[in-house]
Every structure is written in structure tokens, then in C-alpha cells.
């Protein structure tokens, strides 16, 4: 069992989501989609709970969660940082920018800092190619960034 114990109200909500979808294994992706909104991620215990409700092995649920990039098993940081790796941003140096974020935060893509403040992800195009390279932090867009800006942004948020 995972170390994370789900709060009672979350368990109730997950059960309710499954019920709304008729506890149908074919609805797994929709159920996971809604369940992820509850806590921002899908902890092991939540996946086991869903597997039990739908009568399918936990390995199947985990297989789906790890297949789709949208689903995540790590809690996002207070400031979720997403670096755009779309074509325009990429050719304007987003890879170096991403490396700098990794270096400064000391984490890899898909991870969260131990203090829970920052998490790092990639995304594909937010439709602001004119501002390339672009980084989104929460709902805020930062454009025309250079690698050196990574540290400044993080410090401004701390």
C-alpha cells in the first residue's frame, strides 16, 4: 500500500465519480481524468481504489496512467513550471532553458522539489509562438526567456 492515506472526503468523491460512470471499466480514462482534478495527481491509493471499484487489476489502471502524458502520479508544486518544447520555442532555445530550470531546481522533468514549491514539466505549444521561448507557471505566461532568466523567475517566486 502507498504511504499516502487518502482523506475520507476524497475517497467519497472518487467513489462518486466511479458511480457516475456506472463503475464501467470502459470509462476508465474519463474516471481518471476527473479523479486527477481532485488532488492534482493520481496517488497509488487512488488508483487502487478505482481498480477495486471497476473490478480490474491495479496493473491495468497503472498501465493507463503511465501511458498518457496527461496523467501524473506526483503532486505538482505550488508553482507548476511548464517549459514549452513546441517547434517555435524549441528552435529559439527552450531546450537550454529547460536544462537551466533543471539545474537551478535540482529536479528532472516530471518531478517536484522536496519542499513542494516547484514542479517541472514540458508542454507542446500554448499558442504564444511570438513570445518564444515560452514558460508557463500556473496560469501565467513568461515569454522571450533566456536561460539566465530561470534563476530570476524562481527567486521572484520564493
Amino acid at each position: 500500500m502507498s504511504e499516502i492515506k487518502l482523506p475520507c472526503d476524497i475517497i467519497g468523491k472518487v467513489n462518486a465519480i466511479c458511480s457516475e460512470h456506472g463503475d464501467d471499466p470502459k470509462e476508465l480514462i474519463n474516471i481518471l481524468h476527473e479523479a486527477q482534478h481532485l488532488m492534482g495527481y493520481l496517488p497509488e491509493e487512488m488508483q487502487r481504489l478505482i481498480a477495486g471499484r471497476l473490478g480490474i487489476p491495479a496493473s491495468k489502471v497503472y498501465g493507463v496512467v503511465t501511458f498518457y502524458a496527461f496523467f501524473t502520479m506526483t503532486a505538482k508544486g505550488k508553482y507548476p513550471i511548464s517549459v514549452c518544447m513546441g517547434t517555435a520555442c524549441y528552435v529559439r532555445g527552450s531546450e537550454k532553458l529547460l536544462e537551466e530550470f533543471k539545474r537551478v531546481l535540482g529536479i528532472n522533468v516530471g518531478e517536484t522539489t522536496p519542499d513542494g514549491k516547484f514542479s517541472l514539466d514540458c508542454l507542446r505549444c500554448v499558442g504564444a509562438c511570438g513570445l518564444a521561448p515560452v514558460v508557463m507557471i500556473g496560469d501565467k505566461v513568461y515569454g522571450r526567456l533566456q536561460p539566465v532568466d530561470a534563476r530570476h523567475i524562481i527567486e521572484s517566486l520564493e
Binding site: P57, T66, F67
Partner: peptide, 18 residues
């Protein structure tokens, strides 16, 4: 239900849950 495919692409493997 012990074994299933997890992850995708070059990272795919067959493994137990989690």
C-alpha cells in the same frame, strides 16, 4: 492481474502495478 504493460514508447515494460 499481476503483470501489465506500463509507460510508452522506449520506456515501455511489462511489470506489476506501480
Amino acid at each position: 492481474g499481476a503483470l501489465g504493460a506500463i509507460r510508452r514508447g522506449f520506456n515501455t515494460t511489462i511489470a506489476p502495478a506501480f
